[in-house]
Nucleic acid binder design. Structure first.
Lengths: 185, 185
DNA sequence: TATGAATTGGGACAATTGTCCTTTTTTAAG
DNA sequence: CTTAAAAAAGGACAATTGTCCCAATTCATA
């Protein structure tokens, strides 16, 4: 549910010591929008601390939460390769610290640092790999089974996230979430 | 709906001329399983020709089609980085030709050929980028809207794919698909 | 061309989930 | 401490979608 990548974070912190001019440390309060959908950015981010949500908003104002991102997760990196506008928004849930790096510096690292390169590829492979099973499960199983699964892997999920976020993560309405939670009691 | 990556395919064919010992050309008939979920592989594939479906099967035997893959799409590459068993199955829909390359050779190319490296990263970025909007749309909109969207981008989708595949792609039952198609007539 | 298998189509009903509201509870700010 | 706003909870009803069938059609192959 909350993705992390500790190896990547560790390596970023090593790099940050070697080349402090590559990274900028930023802080955000809960509810701050760090990255906004459909905007153009020159930089991307790696989470040093805290939890964010990554979500898509559609024209009706409905949000679809893709994932919750924690330590070591990067975001805004896809735009380096596609050249497109950012295709999701990132909002801080807790207090969040991020390393910010420009596309240009990121590209330099990718080309000149093979360890960095490998870590980035690996992170992307993981991102591809976990999405499909989740969406598959969400579509094939009932809301009840989805909540039970969530509870199993994150017993205290309901203390960290709002009901609304959980519903948006599961792709259901708040009403359905409440109803199902009642059924479980 | 049918993903392709022509730039990547072109580059693979250039590489194949330079280093013919890296690639093996294989052919499959419709319905052949090229890659099977939960098995271990030493090689991965790039599609030279034809259409395949990439799907996950759950324990109840339900299939969830992630994508249809066409020219230039690679599959089985995630396992190079994760070391895990294959997490989806790939089945030929039309006659299919693929380039097969071992994990080892693939890794060598990644490390020594920066153009190849960049194409692989780009392909992964695209894979990450298109999944989320699709699943978001599928969850937020009615079956009818999903079918209309499909028709728009692939007017002749129903001549290429079976009804069952379309239903599995949309994450709905065959019954629901038929009902909705009737409503559209 | 006969025959069983796969694919397509749809009726009837049940279950699930969403929509629209209203109420209660909690939170945050003055 | 008061008060407005946000979050949580849930009633009533409607709409959507699934389940379980069975019939018709097409396809592949002996």
């Amino acid at each position: 549910m909350i993705r992390t990548d500790i190896d990547f974070l560790k390596y970023i912190e090593i790099l940050n010591q070697k080349q402090p001019d590559y990274f900028e440390l930023e802080s955000y309060n809960p509810k701050a929008i760090i990255l906004e959908q459909d905007k153009r950015y020159q930089s991307l981010y790696i989470i040093k601390n805290g939890i964010t949500k990554c979500y898509l908003s559609d024209e009706n104002g409905k949000d679809f939460i893709q994932e919750f991102l924690g330590k070591g997760m990067e975001f805004g990196e896809l735009e380096v390769f596609s050249g497109n506008l950012s295709f999701c928004s990132i909002e801080a849930i807790s207090n969040v610290e991020v390393y910010k790096i420009t596309h240009q510096h990121y590209n330099e690292l990718l080309e000149n640092d093979s360890i960095f390169n490998r870590l980035v590829i690996k992170a992307m492979a993981v991102k591809i790999g976990y999405k499909a099973p989740r969406h598959s499960f969400q579509q094939s199983y009932s809301i009840e089974e989805n909540i039970l699964k969530l509870k199993k892997s994150y017993p205290d999920y309901d203390t960290i996230f709002s009901k609304n976020d959980i519903a948006n993560y599961l792709g259901i309405t708040l009403r359905s979430l409440n109803r199902t939670l009642n059924g479980l009691k």
